[in-house]
Design a protein around this nucleic acid. Structure first.
Lengths: 156, 156
DNA sequence: TCAAGATCGTTAGGTCACCTAATGATGCGA
DNA sequence: TCGCATCATTAGGTGACCTAACGATCTTGA
């Protein structure tokens, strides 16, 4: 992945065949940006989903696994393995929630916060490559639209 | 998947934790729309990637597998299996390209075109659910932005 | 002309994230 | 207290992707 621009020169029939297929565009752009992010994150030994979890924990210290799963739309089984790995690597830890002993309260460690900081810088780079050709105004507009699609506009 | 609205009520910390992470938003919206489409397509025995290939073939009759792969960003190995299945089901067929006998020329059958037609109606339904809450003007804007991101704006 | 290298389709083996169904521990309402 | 819901976990399966290899074929250049 040495390309500056993440979507270089796709062949022609695209624009005709898929000009109206928003689901397809979303799916492909999503997969593409995810892959790009994964490549940039590789030196940190992190994957995009893992960064999302670290970020969620930074914002919601002590979240339960259930909260993370439904907040980030990630798989519950995947999260179990992810937290196992985080604990092995000292990035986060599971504590027991005293008021509900079924649930865990997941906390970042100092190292986890450090890694998150590094990952977020790379996230900016992804956005730069992904939206590079777009003027700032379009970028803001796109961002607003994406958030409204996920129904997340209630709180900005 | 009985929900009318594809992105119902996500938990709270989202908007704060990910308000700026465009790559994450794209990736999740993309996966989500893909999943919704897959569910709607299930009765036809088709998956989203398969519809994309059928659609590509409808627009570029006799395309080679290489063209499909690079045109749709799908995996070459996956396409091999997909075309095997299409031929079994009588939706498409591989012919030999006489001017380059390494390459195949893939053609839709009449049945393939029929199935594509049915699938495209469902595609409209996906867009309706995905972008339902958005005013038409925003929908158009979003569409334009997505296409410009993929560098597909040269021909609309 | 023909040998070297590129390209097309194909196969095999691996990864990642998702899905479903089942389980034990725990909480909670009737 | 009994029954049911919920939380974390495990196991097995799927789809789409990746890389590396392979024969067949095309292309290029010595």
């Amino acid at each position: 992945m040495s390309e500056e621009w993440a979507f270089a020169a796709p062949p022609k029939p695209w624009s005709e065949a898929f000009s109206d297929d928003v689901a397809f565009l979303f799916s492909k752009i999503g997969a593409r940006s995810n892959k790009l992010y994964a490549e940039l994150l590789a030196p940190l030994g992190l994957r995009p989903n893992q960064v999302a979890v670290l970020q969620y924990l930074a914002a919601s210290e002590g979240a339960s696994q259930r909260e993370i799963v439904s907040g980030l739309w990630i798989d519950a089984g995947s999260l179990v393995a992810m937290l196992d790995e985080f604990e092995d690597r000292g990035l986060a830890e599971r504590r027991r929630n005293p008021s509900d002993r079924r649930a865990s309260a997941v906390h970042l460690t100092v190292d986890g916060r450090d890694q998150l900081g590094r990952a977020l810088e790379l996230s900016k780079e992804v956005e730069r490559r992904l939206l590079g050709p777009l003027p700032a105004a379009d970028r803001r507009r796109l961002h607003t639209l994406l958030k409204s699609i996920t129904g997340l506009n209630g709180r900005g």
